[in-house]
Design a protein around this nucleic acid. Structure first.
Length: 421
RNA sequence: GCGACUGUAGCUCAGUUGGUUAGAGCGCCGGUUUGUGGUACCGGAGGUCGAGGGUUCGAACCCCUUCAGUCGCCCCA
């Protein structure tokens, strides 16, 4: 009985829309971003935190508050068996704020935290946007001084430089003022745009009610003519807020971090105060933000915690990896080829010896023995060890692809030792 | 949620105005050649032409629906 006659076709389940299986050069670039972040984060003495991937829905719905679209349409929420509404984290900040409150991390304040991992948003996938995506994240909780904003930005700047992607990426900066100045500005914007409402784009007419600050970064040319003359936050900043922003910008100048003012850079949520920033690029199509963040002094209270100043940023690992591009191929130190079946065990023993000695090594012991050498060469190892059994003789070959390979002598010594044994 | 474009072998792609048994390169597997070798040659496996329906004597090709991908809009915590 042949297979085709009696087997019913088993449907392979497909991957969830907007998820990705990252492999090969993409996976290498991804890992490089995370490794670089981990290294830089240690330089700045940020402490690593591991966070749950899901939380009670209230953790996010409270912090996101009024923007009902985001909460109702764009979160992965579900009920557990006890009927509790849970949500896959759409960001790190809210969960970290919850942990800060519930674990009493005030005792460590000001505390510098760093984490990374998957986040989930129910959105239509497009370039650099996925439903499960990954971010690196850095936060400083419990410090109200502008010096920590500067430290955080300098860290971000150094990270991008060490990733080699700082060219073509610019830091854009704005202040949203304190609660008082922010509200005054917002009221003025609404008044200004309401007067010309009929001439705004349909989208912006809607934004006027829901999220007026967002009109400022509308892409529609009909809106842009009015945006140019819209009220500026600078005219609404009180002395305290002015001083804060001046301290941040002068701190950046002193640290040698280039920045540009972008008066249209806003945050939709009320708990954001003072500094708002984005590192942007034109190299990623419509998804131009590489790294973004700001000061969110009002967040802790919206989660029922004590008033706590905090500032942080996050960056999409996939986007950073796209900018990093293809890394140089990581060649192995040694390839051990068993060119006949009699030497397969020898090859396994020898390759293990290399690995114990700290060399990256791969054994070629599968498939046609005659083709293993070619297969090994295609992986571009620095050295190739050939183990053969021909004409009733053991034959061992050694080849170093480039004379300059610094560890050639050590590799050869391990082979010699193996042959004698 | 909306729009445009795209789905053919593991990968990259051909496939004529609708017409026999759907092809190539690469990769994979087997073999021959070479025998300090990245070569060349021979052979093989592998396809519900994304899925479902319709038009037609006949559909990979035309129509509808659906799913997926890509890019953009909305949103962007």
């Amino acid at each position: 009985m042949s297979k085709s006659e009696n087997t019913t076709r088993i449907e392979t389940p497909q991957a969830i829309r907007g998820t990705q299986d990252i492999f090969g050069p993409d996976a290498d670039a991804f890992a490089h971003v995370v490794e670089t972040f981990e290294r830089v984060r240690r330089l700045y003495r940020f402490r690593r935190v591991e966070m749950p991937v899901f939380e009670k829905t209230a953790v996010f719905s409270r912090s996101l508050g009024e923007t009902t679209d985001v909460v109702s349409k764009e979160m992965y929420s579900f009920e557990d068996r006890g009927g509790e509404s849970l949500t896959l984290r759409p960001e790190f900040t809210a969960g970290l704020a919850r942990a800060y409150i519930t674990n009493g991390w005030r005792q460590y304040a000001p505390v510098k935290l760093a984490t990374h991992g998957p986040l989930f948003r129910y959105e239509r996938p497009q370039k650099g946007r996925y439903r499960q995506f990954h971010q690196i994240d850095a936060e400083i909780i419990g410090a109200a001084e502008p010096t920590v904003d500067v430290e955080l930005l300098v860290m971000a700047d150094q990270l991008l430089k060490e990733l080699g992607i700082a060219d073509g990426v610019t830091l854009t900066l704005n202040t949203l003022g304190d609660a008082e100045s922010r509200e005054a500005w917002r009221a003025a914007l609404i008044e200004y745009f309401r007067a010309v409402k009929a001439d705004l784009s349909e989208d912006s007419q809607e934004r006027l009610e829901k999220n007026p600050l967002r009109i400022l970064d509308s892409k529609d040319p009909r809106d842009k003519v009015f945006v140019a003359d819209a009220p500026r936050i600078d005219d609404f900043l009180n002395a305290e807020a002015q001083d804060f922003f001046a301290a941040v910008t002068s701190g950046l100048d002193a640290a040698g971090v280039a920045w540009e003012r972008n008066g249209a850079l806003v945050r939709g949520l009320d708990y954001y105060r003072h500094t708002a920033f984005e590192f942007v690029t034109t190299r990623l199509g419509a998804q131009g933000t590489v790294l973004g963040g700001g000061r969110y002094d009002g967040l802790m209270e919206s989660l029922g915690g004590p008033a706590t100043p905090a500032v942080g940023w996050a960056a999409g690992i996939e986007r950073l990896a796209m900018l990093v591009g293809e890394l140089p191929y990581d060649r192995s130190d040694v390839a051990v080829v068993a060119e006949s079946r009699e030497r397969e065990v020898d090859a396994s023993v020898l390759v293990a010896a290399y690995r114990r000695a700290g060399f990256s090594a791969e054994a070629f012991v599968t498939g046609s023995p005659r083709k293993r050498y070619d297969k090994a060469q295609k992986t571009q190892p620095h050295t190739i060890v050939s183990l053969d059994f021909r004409d009733q003789q053991y034959v061992n070959g050694f080849k170093c692809d480039e004379a300059l390979y610094p560890k050639m002598a050590e590799v050869q010594a391990i082979l010699d030792h193996f042959i004698k044994a």
